[in-house]
Amino acid sequence: MHVRTLLRGLAVALTVSFALAGGHASAAPTTAEDSALAPRVLTYDASASAEFKAAVDRGAAIWNESVDGVELRPVAAGQRANIRILADNGWPRALTTTLGNGTVYIGRQAVVQGYDTVRISAHELGHILGLPDRKPGPCSSLMSGSSAGTACKNPYPNAAEKAEVEENFGGVFVGPAVAPRNVVTVD
């Protein structure tokens, strides 16, 4: 959301500057501007994520704070979600059907072993956003997953991971994105 805020602020500043310089300024319709700068909205359904719902919501919020090209929102009642999130007793994994669509499993096995639930959630959502595992890897890499160890609590994507998601979703511009179909990533 940082780039959209900056661009809107710049547009307002230019309009005010032009008006102060004696010119006549009028605001352009915001619908074209907003649609060009709008993130691609993906909805997620965490209703079956059991005890991990708060961690899933926090993982989605972290992605929303970190990138501009895509926004993760909870699904509205009666709406079909792009991402389903389920809790189970296995290992965390993501089944990506297309970029931005799929199913995330928050596996209790990793939680029992001591892995952080918010990191797991953000990591698995990263797969849905098109990121692969980067193992082995340091704790500073969200997509290093379990290879960073149980002491790693970092749920934030690094600069390269953010840039890759921005590229996957066309930066700040809305448009179709394509990814491999039916990819299962087990972490």
Rank of each mutant, 00 (worst) to 15 (best):
A27T: 04
A110M: 10
K162V: 13
I62W: 00
N64P: 05
V118W: 02
L42W: 01
V118G: 00
S144A: 15
P176E: 13
E71V: 12
G145M: 09
P39V: 11
T43G: 08
L37H: 04
L10F: 04
N101R: 11
V118F: 07
G78H: 10
E161V: 05
T30Y: 02
G9L: 07
R73D: 12
S47I: 00
A54E: 15
V178H: 12
D133V: 09
S47T: 12
G59E: 08
H123C: 04
S47E: 06
L86K: 08
T15S: 03
G23S: 02
R181E: 14
V12K: 12
V56A: 09
A28L: 14
Q79N: 11
V75M: 04
A122V: 12
F52I: 09
C152Q: 04
D133R: 13
N154W: 08
A28Q: 14
P92H: 14
P136T: 08
G100A: 05
N154G: 10
T103M: 01
V174K: 05
E166S: 02
K162G: 04
P176A: 13
L10D: 04
G90C: 02
L14Y: 11
C152T: 08
P176M: 09
C139F: 06
L14P: 00
P155F: 03
H24R: 12
E65M: 13
E161D: 06
T185N: 02
G175H: 01
D68N: 15
S17D: 01
G69S: 13
V111R: 08
A46T: 03
N64W: 14
I62C: 07
S17F: 02
A54T: 13
R84E: 12
R80V: 15
A32P: 01
R181A: 09
A87V: 05
G149Q: 06
G145T: 13
S47H: 06
R134G: 08
A159N: 01
N82M: 07
A163R: 06
G22A: 05
S49M: 06
T30Q: 05
L86I: 15
H24D: 10
A87N: 05
G90F: 10
S35N: 11
V186M: 11
I106A: 02
H24F: 00
L20V: 08
A122Y: 08
T117R: 13
S66H: 07
P157F: 00
D68P: 02
N89C: 10
F18R: 01
F52T: 10
G145Y: 01
D57I: 04
V186C: 09
T31F: 14
E167Q: 14
E65W: 15
S121R: 06
T185K: 02
L37K: 01
T31H: 11
M143P: 03
V111Q: 07
Y156V: 10
I128F: 05
G59V: 10
T31A: 13
A50T: 09
L86F: 08
L99M: 12
V111K: 08
N101W: 05
S144W: 00
E71F: 09
L142Q: 10
Y115R: 13
Y105W: 14
V184Q: 09
H2R: 10
N89G: 14
L42K: 05
V3M: 06
T15W: 04
G102I: 00
Y156F: 10
G107Y: 02
L129C: 07
F52P: 04
R73Q: 15
A13S: 11
